[in-house]
Design a protein around this nucleic acid. Structure first.
Lengths: 202, 202
DNA sequence: ACAATTCTAGAATATCTGCTCTAATACTCG
DNA sequence: CGAGTATTAGAGCAGATATTCTAGAATTGT
């Protein structure tokens, strides 16, 4: 029914990602149109608004990241090893998919997607995006510390999320290889968790 | 000679910082003018352009941070203690000057200052901004490990930069108190460096 | 007091950007 | 084939925004 699509969504999203990463506010609708070879009208027909398009880009990027994250975590044995594997994925993601990693780690969602006037489905998707990760972090806290309360979960978040984030971000900004110091980073991750566990039951 | 200034630079920079932190692209020249009670014309007379103004804000913020950093590092005894003191300053900065910390830790420079068409002096100042910190990190590595090569410096950077950054960022984003887990963080910093030192000379 | 200098002041402008609108196009299904 | 429908297509619009411009005001040095 109807005319088939001439351009794939991913074409548009890739162009958008590249222009956003190029910085300087270059991701205008006109530029998106030129870069992806998709007319402005088609962009609006497909995505509804520029904000909605950016939201879709964000969703795609986060989902790609999470897919690898859960795969890595599931493959590892429960407890400390699993936490370290989860942390390692952030580094590996930056190596495997540099463009997506740059978008995810160097851009905040609020900065990318401005307006709150989005389709309800998209907005809901954005809201619930972190839910599965939070569940995983809680489970990690339970595995490592025996119980998941505010304190233990916070330590896990810092060790598994924030620390790799800070590390990779620094190397991405410097244009260097984030994987180069992967072992050193993971040692600190493990250390952070071990020390917190030692403090828990004195 | 000539008419004295009616408004202090800091008044303008404070208003700019607040509007930038409020997000949503609200830091327009008109908004800056209203918020700081300085006419648009005066802003341009003083700073030359919006970008130049934002660059000045960035410079002021980084210099404030570095001033405290070097003060803390100088006051501490060389070696491990000095590294821990440097790490501690990041946490204290977030506590003492929350607004500046938010700007520095949650905003990238490239995102704040768009154009490269800045006064040469300002651009040069932006370029050389990190130089003294890098020197300090190298010196810390030399003090702790006896020599500063790529590996030892990286460990110092992870412990003194990435780790506190991760810790503070989490709390700034959540609106919590960054100083709450200061002791635990510093313990991990010290431990990380001690362990790396033990590994260095097996 | 006078001239020189620096700053204040905000209306006007030129540019840019997200978005809409109308028409045409190309495919599927009956 | 023909009706229906989803998509393409891009010129044009309305609003916003950084910047300029011109006039005037306040202060200092002579």
């Amino acid at each position: 029914m109807g005319r088939p699509r001439l351009h794939a969504d991913d074409t548009v999203l890739d162009a958008t990602r590249d222009l956003v990463l190029a910085g300087g506010g270059g991701a205008t609708t006109a530029a998106l149109s030129t870069r992806s070879a998709v007319p402005v009208g088609s962009l609006y027909h497909r995505f509804g608004s520029r904000d909605a398009l950016l939201a879709e880009l964000w969703l795609r990027t986060v989902k790609r990241f999470q897919a690898g994250l859960f795969a890595a975590a599931t493959a590892a044995p429960p407890g400390l090893d699993r936490a370290v594997a989860a942390a390692a994925w952030t580094v590996d993601f930056a190596t495997d998919q540099p463009a997506d990693a740059r978008l995810l780690l160097l851009t905040r969602r609020e900065e990318l997607v401005r307006d709150a006037s989005l389709p309800a489905t998209v907005r809901a998707a954005l809201e619930d995006l972190n839910e599965p990760v939070i569940r995983m972090l809680r489970q990690l806290a339970a595995e490592i510390f025996g119980h998941a309360d505010r304190g233990t979960v916070e330590v896990v978040v810092i060790a598994v999320v924030d620390l790799p984030y800070a590390h990779v971000r620094r190397h991405l900004l410097a244009g260097g290889d984030a994987g180069r110091h992967r072992p050193a980073l993971l040692r600190v991750v493990r250390h952070t968790l071990e020390e917190a566990r030692a403090d828990e039951v004195p």
